[in-house]
Simulated assay, not measured.
Amino acid sequence: MPVQPAVPGRSAAGRRAGRSVLGLALAGLTAVLLTGCSAQEASCGGGEYPVLAVGSTGSACVPDGEEPPAGYARYPEGKVPEHVGDKWDEYWSTRTLDENGNIIKAPEAG
């Protein structure tokens, strides 16, 4: 290990602590880059799936294995948002389902 020059007011323990914090930060950044993790927020938590409010752009999360509550429906296959802000989340911000399951333009808010 290279010898660091003495810095007034900074002990050897302080220099080691500074290197430890830097090392942890670099290790965390490396892990994120290597695993491909993103900062995107999931639409629902583990063990849940998203459902769409019929007639509006509202949504909710339902536990896997349960049916959507009254007034909600499953998203059409292949058009399910997985993350906040993904293409399907954006798509459903202006569309919804009618009572027959047809995709329609969402009513204007207000």
Rank of each mutant, 00 (worst) to 15 (best):
P2I: 08
P2W: 04
P8M: 04
P8D: 10
R10T: 09
A12Y: 05
A12G: 10
G14Y: 03
G14C: 04
R15W: 04
R15L: 14
R16P: 00
G18D: 14
S20C: 10
L22A: 15
L22M: 14
L24M: 15
A25H: 11
A27R: 10
G28T: 07
T30R: 11
T30M: 09
V32G: 02
V32Y: 01
L34H: 02
Q40M: 06
E41Q: 13
E41T: 13
C44P: 01
G45W: 03
G45M: 07
G46N: 14
L52I: 14
G55V: 03
G58F: 03
C61G: 14
P63T: 12
D64W: 04
G65W: 02
G65P: 03
G71Y: 02
Y72I: 10
R74C: 03
P76G: 01
P76R: 07
E77Q: 11
K79T: 06
H83C: 02
H83V: 05
H83F: 03
H83S: 08
D86L: 02
D89K: 03
W92E: 00
D98L: 11
D98K: 12
I103Y: 01
K105S: 15
A106S: 11
A106D: 04
A106M: 12
P107W: 08
P107N: 14
A109G: 14
G110T: 11
